[in-house]
């Protein structure tokens, strides 16, 4: 018997095809990350049994569950807008699951009260959902999902409905509860910060397919698609490497890296490592090019400059540079990336 989740999810809906293999160990938190319409929520619904599989399987701790009806799966779901039953108190919402699974009323209510206490909502038992704040409703939804003691916990954009301040508070609370959770937890999100903060492993889905997976730090360091690169805020290009030199595809620019690699590679470099200057930079011919300024906007206390021309890239510069270099849309500047700043890794 293998503990944890093994699943292959194939769902067809018109033109859209989701085909995703997922594995997760018990106790692991996996974030399904991807742009809107990538099929993340569909994958989650398929795991819960709310969407039928065209092909594939879902095995939990070695036991196939994909033929079980929704209500028989050992699964707990936290829905995006929580879907707390509006006519029930917080306590009854949490007790609903245990009641449906045959726990006697009084014991179910005691268990529900215990779960509300664990998510920090002691004293809110008799509140109706409409009397709860967004953060409180999110925690009731989490308690409700956990109260059925699932082996697979599914969370669909659990923080998306919250304002920024509540969000960071709830995120740290959720992180703690997920760490305590003994089963497999799958979090669907399109927010890289939520994914990085909550998950042990990221699974990036685009257009129904897996494009990359790995520990958050690894995914951030070595993105393998434009979407992931944008998400983690690095410039990504592809090229052919020979030794320390990378000839980029579709661009005359050659980048240099300080560790030799061979063959098809991704080359990633941070916007902060792109230096802009008015004159042609000193030194060798590689890692520098004449770029056209396409957009200039504020990015925290730095200025983000979108560069066009031979190589599409972003550069972060100090505000003073805007005036010094005349960084206005349409102007041209020299751009430079040092070898030490370029990470190259095989495709």
């Amino acid at each position: 018997m293998t503990a944890g989740l093994q699943a292959r999810l194939v769902v067809r809906r018109g033109e859209f095809v989701l085909d995703l293999s997922l594995e997760a160990a018990a106790g692991e938190v996996v974030a399904l990350l991807g742009p809107n319409g990538a099929g993340k929520t569909t994958a989650l619904r398929a795991l819960a049994g709310l969407v039928p599989l065209a092909e594939g399987h879902v095995r939990l701790d070695g036991e196939p569950v994909h033929r079980l009806a929704v209500e028989r799966r050992p699964v707990g779901v936290v829905f995006q807008d929580y879907l707390l039953f509006p006519h029930m108190t917080a306590l009854d919402n949490v007790a609903f699951g245990p009641r449906c699974r045959g726990v006697p009323r009084r014991r179910a209510r005691r268990r529900a009260a215990e779960w509300l206490r664990r998510v920090g909502l002691e004293g809110h038992e008799d509140r109706r959902p409409r009397e709860l704040s967004g953060g409180q409703a999110q925690r009731v939804a989490l308690a409700r999902a956990l109260a059925v003691e699932p082996r697979l916990l599914l969370l669909d954009e659990p923080l998306a409905a919250l304002d920024a301040h509540t969000r960071s508070q709830i995120r740290s609370g959720l992180r703690r509860h997920l760490a305590d959770f003994a089963g497999v937890a799958i979090v669907v999100t399109h927010d890289p910060l939520d994914a990085m903060a909550l998950a042990d492993r990221l699974v990036v889905v685009e257009r129904g397919r897996l494009v990359q997976q790995g520990p958050p730090a690894e995914v951030a360091r070595r993105p393998r698609s434009d979407y992931v690169a944008r998400l983690v805020g690095v410039n990504l290009c592809r090229g052919r490497a020979e030794g320390r030199l990378i000839a980029l595809h579709g661009s005359p620019v050659r980048l240099e890296t300080d560790r030799p690699v061979q063959g098809e590679v991704f080359a990633a470099f941070a916007p902060s490592s792109v230096a802009l200057c008015a004159e042609r930079p000193e030194g060798g011919p590689h890692g520098r090019w004449r770029a056209r300024v396409e957009a200039v906007e504020r990015h925290g206390d730095r200025i983000r400059v979108e560069l066009g021309g031979p190589l599409q890239a972003s550069a972060d510069v100090a505000p003073a540079a805007v005036a010094e270099l005349g960084l206005v849309e349409g102007n041209e500047v020299w751009a430079r990336v040092e070898a030490a700043e370029v990470r190259a890794y095989p495709v």
Partner: peptide, 10 residues
């Protein structure tokens, strides 16, 4: 809401 109830075992 009915789906949510189903996932809770109803």
């Amino acid at each position: 809401y009915e789906e949510a109830a189903a996932t809770l075992g109803a």
